[in-house]
Design a protein around this nucleic acid. Structure first.
Lengths: 119, 119
DNA sequence: CTGTTAATCAACTGATGTGTTGATTATGAC
DNA sequence: GTCATAATCAACACATCAGTTGATTAACAG
């Protein structure tokens, strides 16, 4: 797998268990046991999922005696959102162009009919 | 890998080559050869990347003689954006709470100093 | 020191991802 | 039909992922 920040973030999000962990962490800090409780998999498996999230910068962990409370970090989510959002303007531009073209075709069709099979 | 739509989308985005393909397709349709040209990997590898994007619904393909023009589909990106955005309000809420707490602590510190070690 | 709890580490398995090269299919040009 | 081009399929190699179980580390409780 690629190890650039954006790839790490998207890869971390590409798993329902990890997304659920983030959803839980959005409500506040939690320990590994607390996070693992709802899932039918072993504690070790959850610990590894958290490690993936940590590598992506989506989670940081403190230390409180033998507990290691996990906290959500939103910066990578923001960056992922920005990457996706960068295309949003382009989409709208394309839709606008498409709209314009449709209007143009309709106007043309009032005179000339059934000659345009361009998709 | 999980095969739910959101996981497929995020997994598809978790690769720089595939993100570059999408960026190229945001400018308009393109054939596999056109898409593959800038990359140092084989055409087959690009074809497989496109298949991943297709499985995620991010790309659809037409047919024009022996060419199979690829087109960007934005719906899955929208859904990914929505998933991330769902937490955005919560983040802001948390930041607001943090702000409020900081203000509260500052106010308190004007009278009582150095007793608050709550993180 | 002993025992308990929280969490990770280590080793292994099976599945999947990403790349390669070589063969194959599909279409258009002559 | 024959040839060239666009693209995919097939088989392989190698790495990584996601899960397991068993051992180990770290901290507190008695």
């Amino acid at each position: 797998m690629a190890n650039d920040p954006l790839s790490l973030t998207f890869a971390a999000l590409a798993d329902p268990t990890r997304r659920a962990l983030l959803a839980r962490l959005a409500e506040g800090e939690a320990t590994v046991n607390e996070l693992a409780e709802p899932f039918p998999i072993s504690l070790q498996a959850v610990s590894r999922h958290l490690k993936v999230l940590e590598r992506a910068g989506l989670v940081t962990r403190g230390r409180d005696a033998q507990w290691r409370p996990c906290r959500l970090e939103t910066a990578p989510l923001e960056e992922a959102s920005v990457w996706i959002g960068r295309y949003h303007q382009q989409w709208e531009d394309r839709f606008d162009r498409l709209d314009a073209e449709i209007r143009r075709i309709r106007q043309g069709q009032r005179g000339t009919q059934g000659e345009n099979d361009h998709e």
